[in-house]
Design a protein around this nucleic acid. Sequence first.
DNA 1: TGACATTAGGTGTGATAACACCCATATTCC
DNA 2: GGAATATGGGTGTTATCACACCTAATGTCA
Lengths: 155, 155
Amino acid sequence: MTPALRDELRQRKPFRSLEQEAHLNIVRTAAVLADAFEQMLKPAGITGAQYNVLRILRGAEGDGLCRNELRDRLLTRMPDVTRLLDRMEEAGLVARARDADDRRLVTTRITARGRRVVDELDAAVAKEHRRRLGHLDADQLGTLIELLTLIRQPE
Amino acid sequence: MTPALRDELRQRKPFRSLEQEAHLNIVRTAAVLADAFEQMLKPAGITGAQYNVLRILRGAEGDGLCRNELRDRLLTRMPDVTRLLDRMEEAGLVARARDADDRRLVTTRITARGRRVVDELDAAVAKEHRRRLGHLDADQLGTLIELLTLIRQPE
DNA sequence: TGACATTAGGTGTGATAACACCCATATTCC
DNA sequence: GGAATATGGGTGTTATCACACCTAATGTCA
């Protein structure tokens, strides 16, 4: 019965429910991980959202993805992907091209420069993951992933 | 061996490591929970950060807290608490008063109006927590909390 | 006691996110 | 074939975030 988060947040009163405690633990842990991750990205000159886009587009290979497909694959909700891509295009990380068949579509692809940026981050990313999560064994990580997956399933 | 997140994000390739999969699961789940929570708050006219401040100040009772103490207790990093409190003060949710002994300190307290807002949200918050996490039993929630706490401990 | 460091709070400014709305192209269906 | 709808993308505007910097009050110690 570890009141670790309560201590961390110097909270005087106990949590109102186990569900609340779980909720706060999840959000808090994600914030800690995401903040550290962003710090790690800083020298490369990109944000967490931009890294995510690059990671996704690298996975899509040369096919690229349209804006909405990309938005749906992003880890976090992001209502303004257009201008995120604007900035990345300006930085030379991605390139956009209007589809010839369906002229509504604009396909975004990763550029050589963008690919170089993610590739060069691979080692630091792996190191960061080990640093933050490496002290849990495979069983623990597996259990955690299972529980989080269960939470995202509606009931 | 459920590739649930991979499906969710329509990712073609497997995760690079169990650590990465865990990291992405945590951040993704937190985003889902936090987004739903913000939607739930919308009718009350406050944001997630503002709710957090009100929740903390309610817990502090009449003592109130100074800005930095409040910042440290927030769930997520928030470098500009001053202007967050500016907005909340303007909305009549909190009140600030400079300390008489140490004139550097400004103590922020919840107002009656702010207290009414959080109090009236209690039922909806509890319902939201049940809706999102109620399908896990106490053992599962306990295990989850334990693992997340472990992650936040440096090694 | 007076220079220096520390702590608390705030400001200026540019970048980013959020929300509502708009335009163009495709599709549906009468 | 043409109005209605759906889909994809973008824009305008405001609020908020993030970072670097600034000022006032307190603490430290030669």
